[in-house]
Design a protein around this nucleic acid. Structure first.
Lengths: 153, 153, 153, 153
DNA sequence: TTTT
DNA sequence: TTTT
């Protein structure tokens, strides 16, 4: 059987990415992203904000991009899939659901969190869960050197 | 701040929906949905299947549709948002991530699980998290009586 | 039969929205949005950018939000459906495909296009293709007064 | 600049796929897909159906899968991007908007259109717009032999 | 816990 | 031009 398992979020990083570099050369980035929505309280009529936190995991090239360019507070578009992992603690099985991203677009103006450039822009990166090499042009543009995007159709 | 929190899955129900009817008249349906993907084991070269389980929650009209028409094994398209709830057990805080659906399309042929009609088809339902009344036409078509879909644009 | 017809874009407005106010009180906004992707030319190895233009249509409350807050150059997240219209010109039938949005999140920092505030933020609006009233809080936050979002689940 | 350009449809093929095999070895499949939604006429109160037609284009491995397994009437999940092409006819520029699919899941029970097996199922295929080889197991399962899906994370 |  |  097969199916579809797709998540799309646009939100802000709650922390800087934590990036680990594995023995096999792959890197993994983890960071929380908040998405919030506004709703009106049924009883009080007040506007309230409901925030949802998502655990995002990025692999390889996307992890490298996250390490270099993403900071706490940045707004990102993340597309990926849900994965629930189980782990033991004190003899108790616990579950964590993560978003394993395979596509990311940075939505915060460049340098907005570190005193750099101030005009808007976004950077986009895409991964096919394969090996990727990250290139950064002088202008700060980011692209994954990936055979998969040779053709624009 | 605001953002986007969207999930789309296509998969099969692992169990019949469990539906509760709340005191205030609202109904809630819960059921697990499996999405699976096929991948090739890097070492053995074997095709393997990875299954992911999702906890789906539907409210009101969609819960009623689920109660009436969804069964274990059925294939569904679910669109919704992620919500992580925490709950206490034995003094330990645990977390569960659910997909709160606001749109559903039934993809299994009608009657495929209960000896009914045999030709294919799908039924679609949409909710705006507001009051809904469910109507079922003689032909088995399902629709939420909702002011919101008066116009087709 | 039923199905799914969903589009999600994140891009920049090519022009200010054109808003018409219909006799029946409804408003409609039209504007083009550019999404671009970067790819590597197979022959030259050069980085190239491919831009795609989308015709976006918003109705009622979302049109009002667009009229008030969206400007050429702004980045937006738009979620909606595809609709292809045909029209006659010089006796020839022509077709136009549009994205009819039912959800929008403004991704440009407030005031970034008119000399206003400079720190980031986003505003989100959602429509269920029903009547909407737009409220703007003093802080500039936007929300559609819609029964549908009374509850945050 | 970068952005997001994503379409997701679930609908039925209006015709068998037309597949062309290009000189360079690549194949391209074209076929129309109908998505429909039900709405209630504001004046008459009648249930009506609004059908939208989408021009789908698949390349390489996905085109091969379409050629082998997709038929008129089949239900499919297609994920891809919008692309508007212009072409000349009688000195007039015309535009066509297509969905260039990069992910497909077959939702019709196998053999439902050719007298084969009768129990439900779905087949899924994914492409990264790179070279793909299609493998069909004896059981009829489909997979793109693609380095990119070696790992299931 | 689904399905092929 | 699909399907129920």
């Amino acid at each position: 059987m097969s199916g579809v398992n797709k998540v799309i979020i646009v939100g802000r990083l709650g922390k800087d990415p934590e990036v680990r570099h594995l023995e096999n050369g792959a890197s993994v980035a983890n960071f929380p992203v908040a998405t919030s929505e506004t709703y009106k309280d049924r009883n009080t009529g007040e506007r309230k904000e409901q925030t949802e936190w998502h655990n995002v995991v990025l692999w390889r090239g996307l992890a490298d991009v996250a390490e270099k360019y993403l900071n706490k507070g940045d707004m990102v578009y993340i597309e990926g899939k849900l994965r629930t992992r189980s782990w033991e603690k004190d003899g108790i099985t616990r579950y964590t659901t993560e978003i394993v991203g395979d596509n990311m677009t940075m939505l915060s103006p460049k340098g907005s969190n570190d005193g750099g450039q101030s005009t808007g822009g976004s950077m986009s990166s895409s991964a096919s869960q394969q090996e990727q090499n990250v290139a950064s042009t002088p202008a700060g543009d980011i692209a994954l050197e990936d055979e998969s995007d040779d053709l624009p159709f």
